[in-house]
Computed example of a mutant assay.
Amino acid sequence: MTQTSRRRRFLYSAASFFFRLAVVVILLGGGGWWLLAHPNKPVPSYWNPLRDLKISAPVTPVTKWQLNRALANEAQCRAALAEAGVQFPAMQDLIVDQNCGISGRGLLSQLVTARMEPVETSCTTTLRLAMWENHVVQPAAQDLLGTEITRLRHIGSYNCRPMRTAQGENSGWSSHARADSIDVIGLDTADGRTLTLLADWQRNEPEAAFLRQIWRGACDWFRVVLGPDFNRLHADHFHLQGPGWGYCR
């Protein structure tokens, strides 16, 4: 066999291999797309990145993908909250200036289970809070306290102000100025207990273990989480912030 013939045979074999590979990829891709997109899909919605977020669904590796899509789309955000029974009636967006205002504004008074004193905040903050309450707070309450949480106590979300530090006000603007965060000071249980970070954080009791567990779990749903161990300004509350660089302290 001549060198030219060998080269032609090699090129033919290579072309044939890549053609077969392309066919397999197309078939598998089409089959995968059908599994995800077909109306009678066999893939559960909480494993399907093409489906919208459901707050009550089990958490899977796909959940964060679905959550990010809902955070970027106000209609999806509000639909996820409504499907879970979260009470968050829409309000007109608040526009103050380039530093202050609320986009996706609403009045939050009820999460999936726990009530709240009505608070104006954003849809994105509400969605993160609902995921935390449903997947962290309530399971931890059942495991460590033997009850459920009926009320989440807070000291507000929106506040048009600069950032505060232990040294005083900072030149930057607080995430509260856009309602991108909320401060939680305590919780009420179905069996009559009231837990506060100021009174219970340092106790050697199940209440303290519960508060520390839900603080750590908040880091799965918020980008910045600050608690009593961070500094004296946070001695009495969790600062739960949506956007940020990823910090849990």
Rank of each mutant, 00 (worst) to 15 (best):
4 T>K: 15
4 T>F: 15
5 S>Y: 14
6 R>W: 14
6 R>A: 14
8 R>L: 14
12 Y>T: 05
18 F>M: 06
18 F>T: 03
18 F>V: 06
20 R>H: 15
21 L>V: 15
22 A>M: 10
23 V>F: 11
24 V>E: 12
27 L>F: 11
28 L>V: 15
30 G>E: 12
31 G>N: 13
33 W>R: 15
35 L>S: 11
35 L>V: 11
38 H>I: 12
38 H>M: 15
41 K>H: 15
41 K>A: 15
42 P>Y: 06
44 P>E: 02
46 Y>V: 09
47 W>I: 10
48 N>C: 12
49 P>L: 07
51 R>M: 10
54 K>M: 13
55 I>P: 02
55 I>S: 01
57 A>T: 02
58 P>Q: 02
60 T>A: 07
61 P>H: 04
63 T>Y: 07
63 T>W: 08
63 T>R: 05
64 K>C: 11
65 W>I: 15
66 Q>T: 02
66 Q>S: 04
67 L>I: 13
71 L>N: 06
72 A>K: 12
73 N>F: 07
75 A>R: 12
75 A>K: 08
78 R>G: 01
79 A>N: 07
79 A>H: 10
80 A>E: 08
81 L>G: 01
81 L>W: 03
82 A>I: 07
82 A>M: 12
87 Q>G: 06
87 Q>M: 08
88 F>V: 04
91 M>T: 09
92 Q>C: 00
96 V>E: 11
97 D>M: 02
99 N>V: 00
99 N>M: 01
100 C>M: 09
101 G>S: 06
102 I>N: 03
103 S>W: 05
104 G>S: 06
107 L>N: 12
108 L>P: 01
108 L>N: 01
110 Q>K: 15
112 V>W: 13
113 T>C: 03
113 T>F: 08
115 R>A: 10
117 E>Q: 14
122 S>L: 10
122 S>P: 03
123 C>L: 04
124 T>F: 02
126 T>V: 11
127 L>N: 01
130 A>M: 06
131 M>S: 03
133 E>N: 04
133 E>G: 04
137 V>N: 09
140 A>G: 02
142 Q>M: 05
145 L>R: 00
147 T>D: 01
150 T>I: 10
152 L>E: 02
153 R>H: 13
155 I>G: 09
159 N>T: 04
159 N>G: 05
160 C>H: 07
161 R>F: 08
163 M>G: 13
164 R>V: 15
166 A>D: 13
169 E>Y: 10
171 S>D: 11
173 W>C: 06
175 S>H: 14
175 S>W: 12
175 S>E: 13
176 H>M: 10
176 H>S: 08
177 A>G: 07
177 A>Y: 10
179 A>D: 08
180 D>V: 01
181 S>G: 14
182 I>M: 11
185 I>M: 10
185 I>H: 08
188 D>H: 10
191 D>H: 08
193 R>G: 00
199 A>P: 03
204 N>W: 06
206 P>C: 00
207 E>A: 00
210 F>A: 00
211 L>R: 02
212 R>Q: 14
213 Q>T: 15
215 W>G: 05
217 G>D: 02
219 C>Q: 10
223 R>H: 14
227 G>D: 01
230 F>A: 04
232 R>Y: 13
232 R>I: 04
236 D>N: 11
238 F>H: 06
239 H>S: 06
240 L>A: 08
244 G>Q: 11
245 W>N: 12
245 W>I: 13
247 Y>D: 05
248 C>Y: 13
248 C>F: 14
249 R>A: 08
